[in-house]
Design a protein around this nucleic acid. Structure first.
Lengths: 192, 192
DNA sequence: CCCGGGTGTGTACAAAGTACACTTTCTTGT
DNA sequence: ACAAGAAAGTGTACTTTGTACACACCCGGG
């Protein structure tokens, strides 16, 4: 049994039962192993969660990379919608990637730090492109990217915490708020 | 043993050991009771967490109510700083109030829904006041309040997830981002 | 006086993480 | 091809935690 097969089983369990339903024992059963065999491949449960966090992060990066639009502002708007879709379609994976609190054993490595991940690099590149068109005057691209990413994540985390009446209402407000904020930052030179 | 005393013990345990360190048994011990006595006062652990969530929320409301500034924009900026201080000084209480995921048994009641809490009402009132001075043209106060609240929460949740190199860096970026975004929304009529 | 409800206890079981010791299986050098 | 060692897997057992269940205590009103 390779580590990959076990990890695939872990992803299946995560997708079905979420972070709270994922246990060493449940993954071991899904992989057809005894619980203790897990420890040959992952130091402990935190290490497994860490791997799932990275997996979710990388999954988002690949989805983000597939977003295409010649206009940088349009690209950013599509990115927000794509992020929302990712969070709603793969909620547990989203949780693992973006909402899991840090623990002693499980920290974001430097290359995932806010503003240094590949997904963020894509985002920053588009902001730079938009700047070349006269948008976003007066602030660093990192600050803008961070603000918009934190905003999207904050909205989704509020939704996950049950602070909207319905998913429908949440989606509407999310889109509204993201567009408003992007417009407020980008300035009014849009489509000029 | 009144429910209040048990709850006080729960708050002590929460403050010291955080959500993950809070168990029925640890609270019972802190209150000088047997574990099972807890169930006379709280249906289950989720009900206890629910009470702690509300407590944290109310604590924030009281802190927010104490913020004073005649200028609405200044008030909002002070509010962001106060929110950051709250999150850093009482991190576990902040977790309980803002970051705990919703469960079947534990949902935000309607009166805590995003945009309907007393703290949010204060915020919205200040945005309305700022509008009277010519700021924030063209968007509803709720949308603006929601965006700024979600942004602050998103930044803090990123920090809690370990996505900044240091607390120092995080604080700097938080302040920068909050001020940038507020300025982007408020428009340039400030202090005119 | 005694009795019913609110409060508290002790016991017990299930789920889960994981330490430990042992077995099986694969790899590799000769 | 085969023995030796490494890698992978197992069974058992202990701990922590939530919580069901049955009983005990205690107190005010008939």
């Amino acid at each position: 049994m390779s580590k990959d097969r076990i990890f695939a089983a872990a992803k299946t369990v995560l997708a079905k039962d979420g972070v709270s339903g994922l246990s060493i024992r449940s993954v071991a059963e899904a992989a057809g192993l005894s619980p203790m065999a897990m420890y040959r491949h992952f130091k402990d449960k935190d290490a497994l969660l860490n791997a799932l966090m990275r997996d979710g992060f990388v999954a988002w990066e690949e989805i983000a990379r597939a977003v295409r639009d010649p206009d940088p502002i349009e690209w950013i708007e599509k990115g927000f919608d794509t992020f929302l879709a990712f969070a709603l379609k793969q909620p547990h994976r989203f949780d693992a990637a973006f909402l899991l609190p840090a623990t002693e054993a499980r920290r974001y490595p430097d290359d995932f730090a806010a503003g240094r991940s590949p997904a963020m690099a894509l985002f920053i590149a588009r902001i730079d492109a938009a700047k070349a068109q006269g948008h976003f005057a007066g602030r660093t691209s990192l600050e803008i990217a961070l603000a918009l990413a934190a905003l999207a994540q904050g909205m989704i985390s509020m939704h996950r915490a049950g602070r909207f009446a319905s998913e429908r209402q949440f989606k509407t407000l999310y889109r509204q708020v993201m567009r408003n904020t992007l417009a407020a930052y980008a300035g009014n030179r849009r489509k000029s």
